[in-house]
Design a protein around this nucleic acid. Structure first.
Lengths: 245, 245
DNA sequence: TAATGTAACTGGTAGTGACCACATTACCAG
DNA sequence: CTGGTAATGTGGTCACTACCAGTTACATTA
């Protein structure tokens, strides 16, 4: 992390500047609610055009590091602990952020013809095969969730048990092996009660309340990639989100 | 909604253009996954600079209407029904989007000294008074949620029962009466079981599963404004969210 | 003293012009 | 037919300029 702008770097200048400013915020050089230098001052300091300055600030505003007040200035957001939450995360990334050790037991990995409802959500024609993965998700060794994924892949694309055991993160396999980058998802949450089978796998009593999440994941080209259903133990999981107007 | 840009309008040109483009998408003039005119073509069509064109497109991309592909073009997102969800909405706005008629029973509205935990989350000094509102929320006449709000207001600011009964929406009172505009919120969701009192108010059986939401709402200057706890009936409510990487 | 106007800030909007990075296509040489 | 290559069109980055719209502090005025 440099403290000046390298005009020949591979990364854009606005991105370099955003990194510099973010660092100043995170390291406390600029206190929450205090103003950062004005756009005209930053022009002088970093020898950049106001266009570039504004692009960098715009990014940090969108990520919640800064906020603007017309006529007054640009200020540091007082955003305690959770920076960069609100983002789309995989189960394992999510758990790491909560300070837990992620783990999993893969119950099955096969090719199936899913229900019409799931085919329709994945925008596949009737009779298409998808890759189904059933897993028990662990946090610090104890069961937290029951996850069933349906993944729409190309004809000669295949996820193997070796892939899963080597990496642990489905998102990483998607990006590294197939160049599919998850960018957006629609998610619904509701409550249900554990069936005896679910209760056994999650090591709870049948009828205990569960948080049911259904998520449809989209690639960079907005193609549905994964339909995933997760049953979380109600007593061990809290869902967190950040909303913007 | 006009089809040309008015250079003398009070609203910015990029905003006018974004509205025009959004309309073309929503009305199906441009099909999903098909490219919209290139930025240079839009310059010609609407007699605007590329700066302004890009600002308009940028907004629509952020809202999920369009997506860009470097070297290829800008395309219409194929995102069926839910556009503009993911946004921060009040309970009543939320219900209207689900096609239900919102209603409420105000159980109490008073000034209290809340618990230390709530004071801390609202960033108030110990002993401060806040406005507390307890409501039963209705959808098409039947109870859906049990809502308790704690609102941090200035010394001579006051929400009255008349305000609430006249408007129905707390967000509208905050913006119209106090010029406080909700812009962001942190929210957690978890499951609980209904106590006998809660069950009676929600017209369900004690022990039925509930979805518990806790939300901390921030104003445009990132000051905490409202801490609100909502207990949703598990059988009548589904939480929806949209995530971005 | 209190009201008021004004100058000097702040960020917001908009135009112009240039060049770069990536994707697609058509064409040519092997 | 295959592989390379150049042309062209796309979005991405950046600089410079101008003016508009809020906010604030301070000097001026009633």
């Amino acid at each position: 992390m440099s403290i000046t702008i390298d005009p020949f770097a591979a990364v854009p200048k606005y991105y370099q500047l955003a990194s510099i400013l973010r660092q100043k915020i995170e390291e406390g050089d600029w206190q929450p609610r205090s103003p950062i230098p004005s756009e005209r001052q930053l022009e002088e300091i970093y020898k950049l055009s106001r266009t570039t300055i504004r692009e960098a600030i715009e990014n940090l505003v969108r990520q919640g590091y800064l906020y603007r007040e017309h006529g007054r200035g640009t200020f540091v957001s007082p955003q305690k602990l959770q920076k960069g939450w609100m983002e789309l995360t995989s189960f394992s990334e999510d758990l790491i952020k909560r300070g837990m050790q992620p783990g999993q037991i893969i119950r099955s990995l096969d090719q199936v013809i899913p229900s019409p409802r799931i085919l329709q959500r994945l925008e596949l024609s009737p009779g298409s095969m998808v890759c189904r993965i059933e897993r028990v998700r662990l946090g610090d060794g104890t069961p937290i969730g029951l996850q069933t994924s349906y993944i729409a892949l190309g004809a000669n694309q295949q996820i193997t048990l070796e892939d899963m055991e080597a990496s642990g993160s489905l998102y990483r396999i998607l990006s590294e092996k197939f160049h599919i980058y998850p960018t957006e998802a629609d998610e619904t949450l509701e409550v249900t009660l554990a069936t005896p089978e679910e209760a056994a796998l999650l090591e709870i009593t049948p009828g205990a309340p569960l948080l049911l999440s259904e998520r449809l994941l989209f690639s960079q080209e907005r193609r549905p990639v994964e339909y995933v259903k997760i049953l979380y133990r109600g007593d061990r999981y809290q869902y967190y989100t950040h909303l913007k107007r």
